[in-house]
Each structure stands twice: as structure tokens, then as C-alpha cells.
Simulated scan of single mutants.
Amino acid sequence: MSRRAKTTAAVLAAVALAAIAALLLWPRPPAPEPSGNPTATTAPTSAGSDDAPLAVFIGDSYTVGTATPISGAGFPAMLGELRGWRVENPAIAGTGYSTGRADGTCASSGCQSYIGVLPRAVDADPDILVVSGGRNDLQRAHVEEAVTTFYATVRRQLPDARLIVTSPLWDDSPTPDALLALREHVAAAAENAGAEYLDLGDLFLDRPDLIAYDDLHPNEEGLALIAERIDELLAR
């Protein structure tokens, strides 16, 4: 190879090396964001710190948060945020005070009464037990007896827990007389058990804007209103 050829080859090699070095040193663009939206999840079940009081909730679909994006967390998660509680929500849609079986326990298809859910609450060893529901009891027999039995059992099995009970709620239509009567009985039984009874009133009457697409359950704004009203009525 001639001297000129060798010189040309050396120059080309130097240029190539410089180009490679430049590519290696050039800052890389950020990785692209993953496509699509993440799967929606329910609100956290634990709002407070590890040493915060544990509140367990028993109730029906209004407590579950049915027909909303936060079904399964419901207003208990919102109330936990307001109060600084840790929260567990074993509420089951379709349940009520009235016993669905003679022994009051859960059938294979799920609990039909609050007393059937109570063992789950007792196992959690809560500092606070919140009971909110009753609208599913209007067509059930022996409702008053079931209410009395439930609260007597709660106090016997959780003698040291703070017991909080809300009045049964209705939707945006006028509250049936049967539910008004049930509210009175729940209030009496709860107070006899040493509970703090909270009369929430007719939160959703003539407020269709607070009802979900199914025309039955509170939407997220409605659930927030439940949590806010309970928080207002509770002593700190």
C-alpha cells in the first residue's frame, strides 16, 4: 500500500471512531410511556397510620359503594381519610338486619344478614365498629327482633369497641313509612347497646345528582356526603 493510501485509510478510520464515540456519548431519549391506562383500583382500605384506630364497617350496598368506581371501598374509605382511621370494609350488598337463616350465619352464596358478617368483624379485633344499613329489611319478617338480637350480640362479642350506628338511608325518592319506623327501632336498639347513633336524615331526597346511573345507589359525590355527615356528627 502506498504512503498516500495508508494516510487516507488512517484518516477514514479516525473519522469512523469519532463517529462511534459521538453516538455513544449522545444523550438517549427518555423511554416512551406505556400505552393505555392502568387498571382502575378501589380506594385504599387503610387510611391511617399503623397505630391509628382500626374501624370495621358492616352494611349493605350503600356501604360497599356499589355502582361506583370505588365499589368495595365506598364511603368507609372516605370517612377513614377524614378521621385518620385504618379501615376494613367487609360489607356485602343485599344484606340487612333480618336473618336469612335460622342460625344467622353465611350461606354458601353469601351473608343474608349483618349477624352473619359479624364474625369477620370480631376476628379483625376493631377499635371501632360502624354499622350502616337497613333499607333491605323492609320486606323481611321479624325485623325488630333481628335488630335487637344483632346489637345485643355485637356488645357481647365486642364489649370494648366503640360502636357507631347510622340511621338506615334511602335514595332520592320519598322515604317509606316502613323505613322511618325501622330508623326508630335501630336507634333504640343501638342506644341500648351503648352505641353512638347518628341520624343522617334524608341525605338524598330530591337530589338525583347524588344518585348513580342505576337510579338506586349513591354516586361518588353521594358517598362523600355520607362520609362528611358522619364526620360532622361524631365527637372527636
Rank of each mutant, 00 (worst) to 15 (best):
P76F: 10
P53A: 02
M78F: 14
Y114D: 11
V130G: 05
I70T: 11
P119A: 02
P34Y: 12
G48P: 04
N136D: 10
P38R: 13
V130Y: 08
G80F: 07
P34Q: 11
R140V: 00
Q157C: 02
A146S: 15
T42K: 15
T42C: 05
P29S: 10
C106W: 07
A43V: 02
G134N: 01
G65A: 11
Y151R: 03
L158A: 05
T153P: 03
E88V: 06
V147I: 15
A146M: 01
D123R: 13
G100D: 15
T105N: 12
T99N: 11
Q157I: 02
T149R: 08
A102L: 08
E145S: 09
G134W: 00
A124R: 13
C111S: 12
P119F: 02
E88P: 01
A40E: 13
D50N: 09
T63Y: 01
A102S: 12
L129M: 04
V154F: 02
G65S: 10
R135M: 05
I70W: 02
L129N: 05
V117T: 13
D50K: 11
A91R: 11
T45D: 14
S46K: 13
F75K: 06
R83G: 04
G110P: 08
N37M: 14
A91N: 14
F150R: 05
R28E: 07
G48R: 06
V147W: 04
P34K: 13
C111F: 10
E88L: 14
G74R: 07
A67I: 01
A91P: 13
E144Y: 10
E33G: 08
A152D: 11
S61H: 11
A40F: 04
R101I: 03
Y151L: 00
G74Q: 09
E144T: 12
T105I: 03
A102N: 06
N136H: 12
A146I: 00
G100E: 13
V147R: 09
V154D: 01
T45A: 14
G96I: 04
D123P: 00
I128S: 04
V147L: 06
A124L: 04
P30S: 11
A77E: 03
A43F: 10
P27K: 10
E145G: 01
V131E: 02
A77D: 03
Q139S: 11
S61E: 12
T63R: 00
G96N: 03
